[in-house]
Design a protein around this nucleic acid. Structure first.
Lengths: 122, 122
DNA sequence: ATTATTGTACTAATCACTTAATACACTAAT
DNA sequence: ATTAGTGTATTAAGTGATTAGTACAATAAT
């Protein structure tokens, strides 16, 4: 993992987002053990507590669970992971549509814009 | 204007965004005079400097200009306003596609999701 | 039993950013 | 000339959250 952080948002937030994406996109398999808090911390060059905080949120989301002395693991519930993936996608889509609406683009127009951008780089 | 602020972002940012939207969506016409800094400040219940800061950014974007003793005005360049509207829309669209891609949705799938959401509220 | 490795809790300090207070500058109108 | 209404600059203080330091707890392996 590259672990490069922007300055415009807390590190723990960025860790949280990147870890979520890693799990949801399948980079960590269901049931797989995650690196230890201290290990991740060294790897990312941050304080263990910062990692801890990010991981707590993943736990709150039900994407990981921890066994006090063995370590942290990705949930074995593949359905939960897929559900999370869908939820994030729907949220993003909703936010996008809302933003476009405020700009005076109705849904047709928003879709048209996306169609028109198909060939381009992001 | 309702001027209600969230707690998760600076006030000046939110002012900036809302004012931008107001201009771009045509709530303020090209050439129209904006309320004075102090007036907006009272209206929104914030410090004049906070308003000043938001307005400075609008100026940087070329959406407003100020005449030192007369007040601030929306640019008369309607093309500039439309351009800004388009830019914001394209940026949002690009961000959306990028986010969806990280989630494993290619463009087809992203569009399909939006189609599927057409009937819903945001 | 001891050690090493894990997650967790608590406290404190740093640190940057936002916001506020205040004073200044300029112009038009009276 | 004076006043009132603009935008602007500068400085200071608050404030809140992030991050770090350090110590604790629990279990598995040796």
């Amino acid at each position: 993992m590259d672990w490069t952080f922007r300055a415009d948002a807390p590190i723990y937030t960025q860790l949280y987002e990147q870890l979520t994406l890693s799990i949801v996109a399948g980079a960590y398999a269901p049931g797989e053990r995650l690196p230890a808090v201290r290990e991740l911390a060294v790897d990312a060059g941050v304080n263990p507590n910062t990692v801890q905080r990010a991981l707590s949120e993943l736990e709150r989301d039900g994407l990981v669970f921890s066994q006090r002395t063995a370590g942290r693991f990705v949930t074995e519930d593949a359905g939960r992971i897929e559900q999370e993936r869908r939820e994030i996608a729907r949220t993003r889509a909703g936010e996008f549509l809302a933003a476009m609406e405020r700009l005076g683009y109705d849904r047709e127009a928003a879709l048209a814009l996306l169609e028109e951008m198909k060939g381009e780089e992001t």
